[in-house]
Amino acid sequence: MLKKTFAALALGGALLSAGHAMAADYKIDKEGQHAFIQFRIQHLGYSWLYGTFNDFDGRFTYDEKNPAADKVSVTIKTDSVDTNHAERDKHLRSADFLNVSAHPTATFESTKITSTGDKTADIEGNLTLNGVTKPVVIKATLMGQGKDPWGGYRAGFEGTTKLKLKDFNIQRDLGPASQEVELMLSVEGVRQ
């Protein structure tokens, strides 16, 4: 009886350990510039205007066997908006758009992750921007994972989502072609 109990405990412990080995915590590699949060919006319907947020931080968990258990958390410093045009960036930081003096950060916290294919998933979560919190869905793709040359382990993802400006209390009307902004995310995380 004691042998069976010990064997069952050992097996349970091994299974539990194996389950924990599958899930891992990752820190987004912003120091190495292997992560980007970019956006684009139409300019008057004639062209695309591109920009980026230069200062952000975040973490995610990744378990390829159980994506429903994964989590994503990102904080963006909104005054780091950069469209390669100083006057436009100043305007984007104003109360007309991001209102960075009142809302210096934007955050995203995942609430649910659903696998949609072999390397794709929908990441549902709450985005807080300009003092407003709304649910969004990021269409994500696993780019790859594996060991790096420095003895670490990395996983990389890209994703996209679209936001309606008025949903986040950005009332400045830029014309009918410019009601939505597309966010494009590319993140590489280092396993902790």
Rank of each mutant, 00 (worst) to 15 (best):
N54G: 13
T114D: 12
N54M: 13
L174A: 05
F97P: 04
G51L: 07
K4D: 06
K112T: 13
G156H: 02
L92P: 05
F56A: 10
R59Q: 12
S110F: 03
T111I: 13
M143E: 12
G58Y: 00
V72Y: 05
N54P: 06
D79H: 08
I37Y: 01
E31H: 01
Y46H: 11
Q171G: 13
L16H: 00
G117A: 06
A7C: 03
G159S: 10
E188N: 08
H20V: 14
T141P: 01
Q145S: 13
E109D: 15
G159Q: 10
Q192E: 14
L92N: 05
A10M: 11
Y26F: 11
S47Q: 05
A18C: 00
T52D: 10
R59F: 00
G131M: 05
A121Q: 10
V74S: 08
D148H: 02
L185R: 09
A69Q: 11
I76G: 09
E109V: 14
G58A: 07
R88A: 12
D79Q: 12
N54S: 15
I123V: 15
K162Y: 03
D55Y: 02
E124A: 14
R59P: 00
D96W: 05
K134L: 05
T61Y: 00
T111V: 12
L92I: 13
D25N: 09
V132L: 01
R154P: 06
S101C: 02
D57R: 13
V136A: 03
T78N: 06
V181T: 12
L98N: 04
K77Y: 11
K164R: 14
E109G: 08
V72P: 09
V132F: 00
A95R: 10
G131W: 01
L44M: 14
A24Y: 01
V137G: 07
T52M: 12
V81F: 02
S178Q: 12
F168C: 07
T75G: 11
Q179P: 13
D173G: 09
D122T: 09
T120C: 07
E87T: 15
A95T: 14
T160M: 10
K112M: 11
N84Q: 13
G32T: 09
R40K: 15
K166Y: 07
K112N: 12
V132G: 00
R154G: 05
Y26S: 04
D25A: 04
W48H: 03
S80M: 10
L49F: 06
A155R: 04
K30L: 08
D82W: 09
